[in-house]
């Protein structure tokens, strides 16, 4: 599932006009990498919720902002499986 989610996140970023040519799993979402502003991160979160039914709460967004693309993908996959399992 990870590859598909990775593709989804990259596609979402691309649609938001971020340059994703060099983006890998190691690319940070924060200033050292994509430098997403808070609304962009919120946009990704809402699209993830729409597609995978996975929620990120307001108080989690600060820590999500510190993840890499791969870290975010893992988190989505983990929560998605948890949701399916429960």
């Amino acid at each position: 599932m990870s590859a598909e989610v990775h593709q989804f996140v990259v596609e979402a970023l691309k649609n938001m006009n971020y340059d994703t040519a060099e983006v890998t799993g190691e690319t940070p979402l924060g200033p050292a990498g994509l430098d997403l502003e808070s609304l962009s991160l919120a946009e990704v979160a809402i699209q993830v919720e729409d597609t995978y039914g996975v929620k990120f709460e307001e108080d989690e967004m600060e820590s999500v902002a510190l993840l890499t693309v791969g870290g975010l993908v893992d988190e989505i996959v983990k929560r998605s499986s948890a949701a399916v399992a429960s």
Binding site: L39, A42, E43, I46, Q47, E49, D50
Partner: peptide
């Protein structure tokens, strides 16, 4: 049509 997640955080700005 699509429900609550259709609304983008970019709407207001």
């Amino acid at each position: 049509q699509r429900g609550p997640t259709a609304i983008s955080p970019y709407l207001l700005p």
